[in-house]
Design a protein around this nucleic acid. Structure first.
Lengths: 340, 340
DNA sequence: AGTAAGACTGTGACCGGTCACAGTCGTCCA
DNA sequence: TGGACGACTGTGACCGGTCACAGTCTTACT
């Protein structure tokens, strides 16, 4: 760890200090720093030694000011409820994003836009260009942040399909309909006849497309009377299960659009004196850490969170660079445990 | 939402654009922006109107460059394992920090230092002054980041007592020993005689001081043979419970230093054919979302996470400003549920 | 031999703020 | 009436990078 020998008044060494030590101009130092085309080997060598000697590090603010690029991206949360935060999968996503970002020499800043005041602040912040782009963690169709980002033409990549802005905002998403189809077919194969579904809110992609895939896979067997909507929370899952049981006591399987809702369904079923999976099979979605901890351990669809975060960062960088605006769909994996 | 009428070449309005519109100098605009002492009411009025008209927002990079302060703080994670991320309480802490930070007009950047490479990057990053201070989320005594931050004299506030740097790094922490004492006394009051403890690693404050408080409260009743160490994970809790049962089949209560370990203990107890709480009472620590979801719902000590994050940000701002370097201890609350 | 092209380098303007300084008023008091 | 002082304002240097431009020195080609 090189300690600056107080070259100037104890201040941090600048590009000009390095230039002096190396015996070149600050322009040459800048050239070495940025790829170093058109720099003689001797000059480069001298500069690199001078950098090591002085312990120079680039001042990102000066760099950002000069280039107009911030070299940082935002991880933007818009869910007003604490659902996302209660979900451990979210942490995986965040950590993955932080690591991918750091691996590219950029910085990840965390922004929360839960209420109107926060939303206004965030809008001003991103519009001012303090970040190069936004990783948008949102799900509700009515989310006003979508409109804001699009009209301000902020480079954005969404996690999950941004309803209402499907074509305008590139996104990384699991294959919602396909995953639901996989699970539905698995339940059918297991011999279940009366399969219910607890969906997510219909204004979220998970709520809409998982139901679509489910209905599609079941075909004639699909019965709308066996569908109830939750909000991804455990309580909502328990309540939805209750309603389903009240209406159709002959259900022999239930597919919840989140592990949390499946957990709620388990509680209701147990209270109703029904055994899982003997009387009613239960399947979830996400494979959050919760899934294997439940009793019985939950059969579910695993979302590839690490891959999702990695792809989001990669894609955002391409969008920022003015490149392609494609979207990416990843497969989910069926994880069979004891519950179904 | 004011739209800039392309005053200059479509670029973002600067302080000088505002000055032109307001008919004053850029120095006066700057004065208005920073508290506005020694500015005439007319000038201020003109400037404020000009700001509204042009849609001006401050360029934080230019500001940071000129002032030498970044106006942002880091949320630094050093845990190599994924324990923290698996724990939903962590998300609460993070969100709280993000909100407190935003509420003060600053930015929260997320840094992960899980391995040596990341650690080096992070060290360079903070040492370069890209953030004003660091919220340190760490727990292990041997964490090399502690030393780095102290020697580089980076303003830091730790979450939990930083072992080995207790006097040097201000911290916000729950009253570890006191909380453990509260729980131990509660278990005694419930009539339990043979109370075991599953501690956290002894190189973490939660591992050390919770055991201290527990032993202290039990006094003569304390039996070191009933203490086993875990690493806060569920599996480690299950294994520790197993060891305790093997050694002392007469335990009638167990206090785990985390809800996750308590969950593991529940599994082991159930496998051993023991009923909770009839045969063995189980208590946890944290009151993570998990606690009330367990079967039976877990009696535990609730950590005031929202308050902790809020206090951390407040304290860090004081440290950054060169102010007091006190530490803050907050009480935890006993939450009685069915497990004990 | 003359010139053009290429490799390399130094110079200085610029990004958008802040801040020290100097200057212009008006007011009040000796 | 003159000077001191306070309120307010404008000016320009500066923070630490980047980048366009001009200039020098080789080398190669006609």
């Amino acid at each position: 760890m090189p300690v600056a020998p107080t070259p100037n008044g104890g201040r941090k060494p600048t590009i000009r200090d390095v230039a002096t030590v190396a015996g070149v101009s600050h322009g040459t130092v800048s050239r070495v720093l940025n790829g170093g085309r058109w720099v003689s080997p001797e000059a480069r060598e001298a500069v690199e030694q001078a950098i090591a000697k002085t312990g120079y590090t680039v001042n990102r603010h000066a760099q950002a000011l000069a280039t107009g690029r911030a070299n940082s991206i935002a991880f933007l949360l818009t869910e007003p409820q604490h659902l996302l935060f209660a979900d451990p999968t979210f942490s995986i996503l965040l950590r993955g994003a932080a690591e991918s970002t750091a691996g590219r020499g950029a910085t990840l800043v965390l922004l929360v836009a839960g209420n109107d005041a926060e939303r206004a602040n965030v809008a001003e912040y991103v519009r001012a260009g303090h970040v190069d782009g936004v990783l948008l963690i949102s799900s509700h169709e009515a989310d006003p942040m979508l409109e804001t980002l699009v009209t301000a033409s902020i480079p954005t990549v969404a996690c999950g399909i941004p309803l209402g802005f499907r074509g305008e905002i590139p996104h990384v998403s699991v294959d919602e309909a396909g995953s639901a189809r996989t699970m539905a077919k698995y339940l059918v194969r297991q011999g279940h006849k009366r399969i219910a579904m607890i969906t997510g809110p219909h204004d979220t992609p998970g709520g809409r497309y998982r139901l679509e895939g489910f209905a599609d896979a079941l075909g004639d067997q699909f019965d709308p009377a066996l569908v109830e909507e939750g909000d991804y929370s455990e309580e909502s899952g328990a309540a939805a299960m209750r309603r389903i049981l009240d209406r159709a006591s002959d259900v022999d399987a239930v597919f919840a659009a989140s592990d949390l809702m499946a957990a709620g369904a388990l509680v209701t079923l147990r209270r109703a004196g029904l055994r899982v999976p003997e009387d009613v099979a239960v399947a979830g979605f996400d494979d959050s850490g919760l899934a294997e901890r439940l009793d019985p351990p939950l059969t579910t669809m695993r979302q590839p969170w690490e891959q999702i975060s990695e792809e989001m960062v990669t894609l955002l960088q391409q969008v920022v660079a003015g490149g392609m605006r494609k979207s990416i769909t990843l497969p989910a994996e069926l994880i069979v445990r004891a519950s179904a």
